[in-house]
Design a protein around this nucleic acid. Structure first.
Lengths: 245, 245
DNA sequence: GCTTCCGATATGTCTATACATAAAGGCGCG
DNA sequence: CGCGCCTTTATGTATAGACATATCGGAAGC
């Protein structure tokens, strides 16, 4: 089972059905053959076809109903998804040299302004970091991060002057939920100084909060100098694989 | 097979394994029992377990290798995903009254500035629309859209004074690929006038290009007045289902 | 002691079969 | 003529068995 046919049977069936749907050959609402018919066409058992159909269903490409049969799904109303890259990766993807610098590191008690923390827990300590990421020596992104010591005790012993906290956290602390918020903001005094731009310049701000089993771990605000940076993503209606460029 | 156990067997196995991974009980790298052992534990056949494992693999929660066995995957480096809502939906989700107004409608020949179009095709006509979406009477978002007549001939007969073009397109024209770009921009003269804000105010700009089988269909730029709008998404590392709020 | 080969192990794929369940459509009875 | 039941169809779930294939680890041979 190889030479040119180096492919599993259900892999082939999946690709062919997917192709007919994504290419538009089968329009939304089109009724497709029954499992039994497809199985006969490929000369395989129904279970094999069933596995494929299950995957297509999970991907949202088809809709199935008992007795009524299977039909191509209407494209979802908001199928848009954007993937946000890791900063170092992002810089190096554009063939630039990545640079990192720690601007500030401070430990403090949590106060009323830390709305991302659970207010029920008391006497929380927070590590506050301000870092600058650069590409080819030019300021690329300002990172303002807060880490809860309750969720990551080890963090107090780490010196973040060489390695960005984001990478350390990813390797060290589990996270079970996260939230992203993207805004356009005017550069603050601090941001304009660090990024070397005029105060009030439009900047893209990405805020990320992370939890571990309900407990807040970290909050980070990434500020990208305006106009020079954009978040981009390509995708297909509901494909089972990520969109290729 | 219901009452409280209203659940399929492989659904239960999936949830339980997923739970142990997402909760952190099984850390990344943790070797999990073989299919045969799990099957024995649940008193089911290996095929049933295999189906579950396949899904967990597709979701990126586990890594499998022949003979070596199955282990919990390292959390992906950039697992961040953002879902962008349809505008009317977005407005109504915040319990505001949605409003729509067509500001301009013009047909013209494509020119060199239309880089989103395929330059090989000649004599292309483009429908250009400018619309304003509002929430509770306040300007919410400015939409500047171009539609290729080659990809959607019917569009010339449609009057977009009542229904937003985005909805019409979703229902009428197939799309097979799309690309999103998010930027922070300073409000242009036109945007500031339409949105009732000062020129130069930071705005969130979402650009979406859509193709149908390689042919450009439409390009749209949505401009949201700065600071008042944000894109938000919640998610879990690599769950098989979307994150619940 | 080092390399090579081989068997044990765990996953990957596929089949044939069985029974459950939902629903469309036809049939019969009132 | 209309209502409800019942058959038929198609999917949903699960099983047991078979064979393929990659690879780890130890045994055999140099």
């Amino acid at each position: 089972m190889n030479a040119e046919g180096d492919e599993t049977l259900h892999g082939r069936i999946l690709r062919e059905l997917e192709g007919r749907i994504l290419s538009g050959e089968w329009q939304p609402g089109h009724r497709l053959p029954s499992e039994t018919e497809i199985a006969a066409a490929y000369g395989c058992s129904r279970m094999t076809v069933n596995k494929v159909m299950t995957q297509l269903t999970r991907a949202g490409l088809i809709v199935r109903q008992r007795r009524a049969g299977t039909s191509v799904a209407q494209p979802g109303p908001q199928p848009a998804i954007l993937e946000i890259q890791d900063i170092q990766r992002e810089v190096e993807a554009s063939k630039s040299v990545y640079g990192y610098r720690l601007l500030n590191r401070a430990m403090r008690e949590a106060n009323a302004g830390d709305t991302w923390l659970d207010p029920s827990e008391e006497r929380l300590e927070v590590l506050e970091l301000i870092c600058l990421h650069s590409a080819d020596g030019q300021p690329f992104c300002l990172e303002e991060r807060q880490i809860s010591l309750a969720a990551a005790a080890d963090v107090s012993a780490v010196d973040f002057s060489v390695r960005p906290p984001g990478q350390w956290l990813l390797d060290t602390v589990r996270w079970s939920a996260a939230e992203h918020t993207i805004r356009a903001v005017a550069a603050s005094a601090q941001a304009s100084r660090a990024l070397g731009i005029a105060k009030g310049t439009p900047c893209l701000s990405v805020e990320r909060k992370t939890w571990n089993v309900g407990r807040p771990v970290t909050k980070v605000v990434l500020t990208y100098p305006g106009q020079t940076h954009a978040l981009t993503a390509r995708f297909t209606p509901a494909s089972t694989k990520p969109a290729e460029s």
